[in-house]
């Protein structure tokens, strides 16, 4: 009974959310002023630049690459609505005791399940828009060697619970997919706050409470000898699109997970296509790893604040607990062993 109530509520919430959203393809057309629909007039700041300020959420149901067996670029609206309904229903279901999924707090209790987040309806079958087949381009030989070396180094480091440094960057509270860059959604709290001053755009990423400070006054890039986990970003306006170029990554950076090299050049583009949609597009140019640049696009949906302090490292009891747990497991295993002769 309660389970059905949860599912019904999740679906109802979800249905309310999508009633107010125009399908993305149509929105795109409207923004470009074709097919008789009026072009969107973006609100402007006193300096004339578009106003992107506010809270935004980039939760998505769309995978980075096109799923196997799908050849087209877009689903129909009906198909996407059905996919999202099913995902919401699954998330609303109770987990089964004794399964891995059950060894976790209930997302619903904390409002964190994906179907509770504002989501911009996206009819694309993949976030990747270029290459047109929706897949990453082929990897170069050097790229394969680089990633094989990384896998080898991980193996040599031992099991994931042997040391804090063997855990993913997210568990160590160093970097998460929401921060990137590029900024991609994770399981929850996919919220961002954008503020704009005349020569600076700041994006506060909820997860890790990460500040991305992007100068838009033409300040030159850092010398190649200075490398940063989130790279170094420079912004400029291209008409009504904010263009952010990021270089100077260190090897402990987000897109290493995707196979990229630290010499990757990232270009992100923000265009506001409606009051509640910020279109985010990024291009990865990494000739060491991929035979050609590739691009992906995901719409961000207007969200609400506040963004409460995400002091992850300070509150990271989990990392201590899981390391201690592994050491206790090993101790128990040693004590169980019969005495050696």
């Amino acid at each position: 009974m309660l389970r059905r109530l949860l599912v019904a509520t999740a679906l109802a919430g979800f249905a309310v959310a999508i009633v107010h959203i125009a399908p993305l393809a149509a929105q795109g057309q409207a923004a470009r002023g074709s097919a008789g629909a009026p072009a969107y007039k973006v609100p402007r700041l006193p300096d004339g630049h578009p106003d992107f300020q506010g809270f935004w959420n980039n939760t998505t149901y769309t995978p980075l690459e096109r799923p196997k067996g799908i050849d087209r670029e877009f689903f129909t609206k009906e198909e996407v609505v059905e996919q999202m309904k099913r995902a919401a229903a699954e998330e609303g279901e109770q987990t089964t005791p004794g399964t891995i999924a059950d060894v976790h707090y209930d997302f619903t209790q904390f409002g964190l399940d994906r179907s509770q987040a504002p989501v911009a309806l996206n009819l694309r079958t993949s976030l990747i828009v270029d290459p047109a087949d929706g897949h990453l381009p082929p990897m170069t030989e050097e790229g394969k060697r680089l990633n094989a070396a990384r896998a080898e180094a991980r193996k040599r480091a031992g099991a994931i619970t042997d040391a804090a440094q063997n855990q993913p960057l997210s568990v160590r509270c160093i970097l998460m997919d929401r921060d990137g860059p590029p900024m991609l959604a994770g399981a929850y709290n996919n919220n961002y706050q954008i503020v704009q001053a005349p020569d600076t755009v700041m994006i506060l990423v909820e997860m890790l409470h990460s500040p991305r400070i992007i100068p838009t006054n033409g300040r030159p890039a850092l010398p190649a000898s200075i490398r940063q986990i989130e790279g170094s970003s420079r912004g400029r306006w291209d008409g009504d699109t904010l263009v952010i170029e990021t270089t100077n990554f260190t090897d402990m950076f987000m897109f290493a997970a995707q196979g990229a090299s630290a010499d990757m050049k990232l270009t992100e583009r923000f265009t506001r296509t409606s009051d509640d949609t910020l279109m985010y597009r990024f291009t990865v140019d990494d000739p060491k790893v991929w035979t050609r640049p590739w691009s992906a696009e995901v719409p961000w949906k207007k969200s609400i604040g506040p963004i409460f302090e995400h002091a992850c490292h300070e509150g990271n009891y989990s990392l201590t607990n899981l390391l201690r747990g592994a050491r206790e497991d090993e101790k128990r295993a040693r004590e169980k062993k019969p005495a050696s002769n």
Partner: peptide
């Protein structure tokens, strides 16, 4: 959502 579960099953005992 399951990507978030990995660390939990290391911290807590099923």
């Amino acid at each position: 959502p399951l990507l978030a579960h990995h660390a939990f099953s290391s911290e807590f005992d099923i």
